[in-house]
Nucleic acid binder design. Structure first.
Length: 657
RNA sequence: GCCGCAGUAGCUCAGGGGUAGAGCAACGCAUUCGUAAUGCGUGGGUCGGGGGUUCAAUUCCCUCCUGCGGCACCA
């Protein structure tokens, strides 16, 4: 029998018998290793320990605590959960149970819904199965055998899965004791390797194959880790995430609320609106500096306009409409683009005016599915930091790159450095000829390459096939927040359709009428949603330039009231958003209250400060107190409160002058 | 929209076939106090809406609305 050469993680090489299994290999290396081994990695690909190694490869024996084993623990836990559910509720069909970030799920078909208490029952049964420590064994079955078997068990979904496996591919069955499942593998050596560090977290509805026209299944989510401290740390992390839920922060900080009569629309309170306006003002400055001019389009327009734009055909079910006394049908705008095209079209445009960039903080309404609504993150009425650029084909790529620069620069101002740019290509439901789509997608693919190259590898890119807007392909900018969640915010969409549909044109240098290309772009996307993201990212600890109330002057005794009023007045004259708390309460009480409402700066004044004309400064999140001269505090705070773009401008002016 | 769960005072929540309770908040009084809750007192609820069962419904049933967790959809 011939030998093969294996390379190990430490770089050493060894010649072994061809067809040696991972288990044999581990045993030949060290008994202790064989004991710890749960799987192996062959050329970076996880495999069962019982698999034979047939060719030269880099091999690592994986033990339970290796990072590679984590997905196996989770996958094995999914299998054990499926066994547990079938043991508790015979007749339940199993479907699929993949590993996901931080855990796993399994989708079941069961006539009776699960009850919340069932999670504990299933968990207990899982512990029992893990305790039995039955080995995972793999068998290769014929298609027919598998189908006959699952048919006899009434597992109709599994039969569909068998049919979906391409001809020529092995059909693997993994057994754990008496229970078995169709599975691609690999698995660890036995159920006992899963350990105890798992927990079922929630259950939910789902659709077979993710398709809402297919049967509804019941999904159970779980999390699993190699060790119990890791599980505990994960559960703590979840708790932390809940604490920074923007809906909770919105209430605690008195920023906004929702109520029954307005599903999906926001009631902004004074402090929330202040924050919102700070964001708008920042964006307005950035856009104006980048050559955009702000406009405002009508909120309600005749149906005919939406027919021309194609919205009536492709977006109708998402639109709020109204019929007036005279029986005209109007729609509340779900997008700003048709309005901007009207502005472009008004009067004759010369090629000299291109690129023609118009921006609008456009309030749009979309009838979103009820189940999609989620705080500020998904609403039915929201403000877009929208803009449209009318340009020539030649200008298109350059404009996309300019937008890219602007977007990335703005995200950096909010501390979002990790950004992924994705190109979404033509969807099934679309307007425009395929030739136009070919052209747009080719141009965008080219720009995407440039974006990646330009960033020096910092920006990751990707493709979302079929997810473009109905009028054109788009770039989606996805940012990652402080706790690792991804949010799609910005978007750049190239549109060869709308200008043509509306008959928009410009007079070119040769005196001919030409149809411009239109670029739709948004940076925050939805101002509401970005506010929510920002709140969760900062856990409510907003930077001073954004905080609705920047400083709270708190008195210790009423003897300091007059001085406190004077401090307040000076703060306000300095352009700071300050408030005063003269209530007859202890300072502990005031500090606690303003800490809970996340006021960034507390300026405490008592008798001493009043006499010395100082203030005691306490920053949110810190117990430290600094007693400083009033003058110094004013200059420090005013400096800190300058928005990042104005700070840059200030520096630029100083450098140039 | 689909599946499941929930809706009780401004907030957080307890209760449960005989028309409701706590803490915080609010209001009043006292307290002038050095960095995360001063004390005492008072007021406040058609128990999400509608319908049904019942002598009696906040409680049980139906239905609608809203929210929550997913799915599907998406900025």
């Amino acid at each position: 029998m011939s030998d093969i050469s294996l390379t190990f993680p430490d770089g050493s090489q060894r010649s072994v018998r061809k067809g040696i299994t991972g288990k044999e290999l581990a045993e030949s290396i060290a008994k202790s290793l064989a004991k710890r081994a749960v799987a192996m990695s062959v050329d970076g690909k996880l495999a069962d320990l019982a698999d034979p190694i047939e060719a030269d490869a880099t091999v690592k024996i994986v033990s339970r605590t290796d990072p590679e084993a984590l997905e196996l623990i989770r996958h094995d836990a999914a299998h054990v959960m499926a066994e547990a559910v079938q043991a508790l509720w015979p007749g339940t069909q199993v479907t699929i149970g993949p590993v996901i970030e931080n855990g796993f799920f399994y989708d079941f078909a069961k006539a009776e819904p699960f009850h919340p208490d069932d999670l504990a029952k299933i968990e207990a049964k899982m512990h029992e199965i893990v305790g039995r420590n039955a080995p995972f064994t793999k068998e290769f079955w014929s298609r027919q055998k598998a189908k006959d078997f699952f048919k006899s068990k009434g597992e109709l979904f599994k039969i569909e899965l068998v049919d979906a496996i391409p001809e020529g591919e092995d059909l693997k069955i993994y057994k754990q004791g008496d229970w078995l499942d169709l599975c691609r593998g690999p698995h660890m050596t036995s159920t006992g390797q899963i350990g105890k560090a798992f927990k079922l977290t929630k259950f939910a509805g789902s659709y077979w194959r993710g398709d809402h026209t297919k049967p509804q299944l019941q999904r159970i989510y779980g999390t699993a880790w190699a060790t119990e401290p890791e599980l505990a740390a994960y559960l703590r992390m979840i708790e932390e995430a809940e604490k920074r839920d923007h809906r909770k922060l919105g209430r605690e900080m008195d920023l906004f609320h929702f109520q029954e009569e307005g599903p999906g629309v926001v009631f902004w309170h004074p402090k929330g609106w202040e924050l919102f306006q700070n964001l708008i003002n920042y964006m307005r400055r950035r856009q104006n500096a980048a050559g955009y001019r702000e406009v405002n389009g009508p909120q309600i327009l005749d149906k005919s306009l939406w027919e021309t734009s194609g919205h009536w055909e492709t977006f109708r079910e998402n639109m709020f409409t109204t019929v007036t006394e005279d029986e005209r049908t109007f729609a509340i705008k779900p997008m700003n683009c048709p309005g901007h095209v009207q502005i472009f079209k008004h009067g004759l445009r010369s090629y000299r005016e291109l690129p023609y960039r118009v921006s609008e903080f456009g309030i749009v309404h979309r009838y979103e599915p009820s189940g999609a609504l989620h705080g500020l993150m998904r609403v039915r009425g929201f403000t877009q930091d929208d803009a449209h650029i009318f340009c020539t084909h030649e200008q298109l790529a350059d404009e996309c790159l300019k937008i890219n620069d602007l977007i990335l620069s703005i995200y950096r101002d909010f501390g979002f450095e990790e950004v992924v740019v994705k190109l979404s290509t033509r969807p099934e439901k679309r307007v425009g000829a395929d030739a136009l789509w070919d052209r747009a997608e080719a141009a965008m693919a080219d720009v995407l390459k440039k974006i990646e190259a330009q960033s020096g590898g910092k920006i990751k890119t990707g493709i979302n096939p079929g997810e473009g807007a109905f009028y054109g392909p788009k770039f989606e900018y996805v940012l990652r927040d402080a706790i690792g969640r991804d949010w799609q915010c910005g978007t750049t969409q190239v549109d060869f359709n709308l200008p043509e549909r509306f008959g928009a044109f410009y007079i070119d240098a040769d005196g001919e009428k030409k149809v411009p290309v239109m670029i739709h772009r948004a940076i925050f996307g939805s101002m509401e949603r970005f506010t929510g993201i920002l709140l969760e990212n900062t856990a409510g600890h907003l930077p001073l330039w954004l905080a609705p109330v920047q400083a709270m002057v708190c008195t210790i005794v009423s003897d300091a009231d007059a001085y406190a009023e004077e401090v307040l007045e000076l703060l306000r004259l300095s352009g700071l958003r300050a408030q005063i708390d003269l209530r007859n309460e202890k300072i502990n009480y005031k500090v606690r209250e303003h800490s809970l409402s996340k006021t960034p700066v507390m300026l405490v004044v008592g008798k001493r400060e009043a006499e010395e004309r100082t203030v005691s400064v306490r920053r949110l999140g810190s117990q430290e107190q600094k007693v400083l001269p009033l003058k110094e505090v004013l200059s420090q705070l005013t400096d800190e409160a300058v928005p990042p773009d104005l700070k840059r401008a200030k520096r630029a002016i100083e450098a140039a002058a």
